[in-house]
Design a protein around this nucleic acid. Structure first.
Lengths: 330, 330
DNA sequence: ATGAAAGCGCTAACAA
DNA sequence: TTGTTAGCGCTTTCAT
């Protein structure tokens, strides 16, 4: 049960060898023997002791507003994988859109257990802004206080609007997220600016809001369709909402894209099941997650504030968008 | 910086108060003062030290075969929530269907950091069967070696088959998971038995296999449809596959449910976006996850092997199933 | 190239 | 009711 004893060396030697700090300090013969004994005895260093002594737990906390959303599942995968490769472990906290914060849940992740936090579209509690708090990186929200990693939603939204405009659409509606988020605010701002440029009153096109579940996305979409008017295209804050809109339109017999073009965001698997498949803005959430971890790691290791990162996105045109109909004639 | 000092008591008193073991041992006056000082100084106990000393990290590892699958997102949420309420933290490992195991990833979750493991449709490595290993509970797979929590897939499959049979279907095909899993084997066994009872040769109906991504689910569905023959209904191992089949059928102009009935499994949000919405077996993955954590906790605390648990499921009939067509006439 | 020894911040047994 | 004390298993400095 005792590697040091079995190998006939001191505890310190074992530590050096097993933590990879033996180079130039311990003879290769000894090191090999230590490793052999460790393997034989099934020895694994105690993480708690290591964390206590070294002050680093090799663990980061991921706070996600909704583990259930397909986008976050993939972001999580990217972050988890990057963390794993860097020898870090990932602690998951599902915030359920703020439901968990009332009692200061993050604080419960006690010192010593976590080297830093990643917030995925969730807002870090005030306590993490205090000096001496563990480092924080925010994903998909630009903040002053923390370094962040975001999708290039401005460019994505512009591409969507360019595409629709090229197809002749002017009355472009918006199906928004009912969940607040800086990322959604940015998209809204681009859309508003574009409508103004087109000399269209944003109040005169169909707008709606929905939450990220099928039932609510479809219900919200019906509300929006009730007020469709002469709107010929709707851009959506994500593919869940877009799928809801696509489903609602089908339920009403509204032809997509003949009567209505729909554009999603994220390029989730969902986009391919819709009929017709959704034109959407392709993001690679795995990259987003991985980049976020890298930034956090840089922050943990260097103590300097790392650069913010922006992950590119790309418009993918599928069947849900088409030329604007001439409603005056139709 | 030092609560004991600030409150004028010993370190031990602080420990007792802050870990809730003060009842009947420390005066309420003292306890209140300690708590006040702790709050004032922003003191939080060091988790690593606590874990080292007490031998329990209050953390469990969740090994998931695919964080990206909507079913697991919800299962994860259930487990995470239950763990949180019990004061435990959840460490996430995304196995990516076995991709991560080559280098013995779980072993890297070093002793002292994890009190136990939950395996979601992933197979615990041999090392966790050794005596002295942390407790393991397996989710959605029945095993001899470990306690487990599963959905009642037998009952679910039977309900599906009853439903289809009542609608007059005899040639019932099967769209299987290309990913192996005990849960899928069970469903297959029920289906095989039923076909035999109906005097139908399982080799004579349409069968296919697919993976849980849109692209592969749709591709696999097309393969299956190539060999549709006189099959009038297909049951699917989950809603992802069923959605793929629904999409593929639409692409081919196959009427659902007029020509082909489709049944899914899980009742994911996906089921509602399909057209028509999918008849499926409703599971509540949050319950599954929560139950799994409870079983693990029981195992951690009592050291006895806890009872296995089975979570009930329920058939939800929607538009994707209908009476069997009379193919001879058609 | 290796060992001895101190101590990270807690908890629990024992004293008072 | 509270304080004293001895470690938990490691890493790290300082000797050798």
């Amino acid at each position: 049960m005792d590697v040091a004893h079995a190998a006939g060396v001191s505890q310190a030697t074992v530590s050096l060898v097993l933590s990879g700090k033996a180079a130039g300090r311990i003879s290769e013969t000894t090191a090999a023997e230590v490793r052999r004994c460790a393997r034989e005895l099934g020895y694994r260093p105690n993480a708690a002791a290591r964390a206590l002594r070294s002050g680093s737990a090799s663990a980061v906390g991921l706070v996600v507003s909704d583990v259930t959303h397909p986008f976050f599942g993939r972001t999580l995968r990217g972050a988890q994988r990057a963390a794993w490769e860097a020898g870090h472990v990932v602690v998951l906290i599902d915030d359920a859109y703020g439901a968990a914060w009332g009692d200061g849940s993050v604080e419960a992740l006690r010192d010593g257990a976590i080297d830093g936090f990643l917030f995925f579209a969730a807002t870090p509690p005030a306590s993490l802004q205090a000096p001496g708090s563990p480092p924080v990186v925010v994903v998909e929200a630009r903040t002053e206080r923390f370094p962040h990693v975001v999708l290039d939603v401005d460019a994505g939204t512009d591409q969507v609007l360019d595409h629709l405009e090229a197809l002749g659409h002017r009355k472009i509606g918006y199906y928004r997220s009912a969940i607040a988020g800086e990322t959604f605010d940015r998209r809204l701002a681009r859309w508003t600016a574009r409508l103004h440029a087109l000399d269209v009153d944003p109040g005169a096109v169909a707008v709606g809001a929905g939450r990220f579940t099928a039932v609510e996305a479809i219900a919200g979409a019906h509300d929006l369709l009730d007020r469709l008017g002469d709107t010929t295209a709707v851009i959506c804050d994500d593919d869940v909402l877009a799928s809801g809109l696509s489903t609602a339109a089908r339920e009403r017999g509204i032809d997509v894209p003949g009567r209505l073009s729909i554009v999603g965001f994220d390029d989730l698997d969902l986009a391919l099941y819709a009929s017709p498949p959704l034109t959407t803005v392709k993001a690679v959430p795995e990259d987003l997650g991985a980049a976020a971890f890298e930034v956090l790691l840089a922050r943990i290791q260097s103590d300097e504030r790392p650069e913010n990162r922006t992950i590119p996105v790309e418009l993918v045109v599928r069947g849900s968008t088409g030329p604007a109909p001439d409603l005056a004639r139709g």
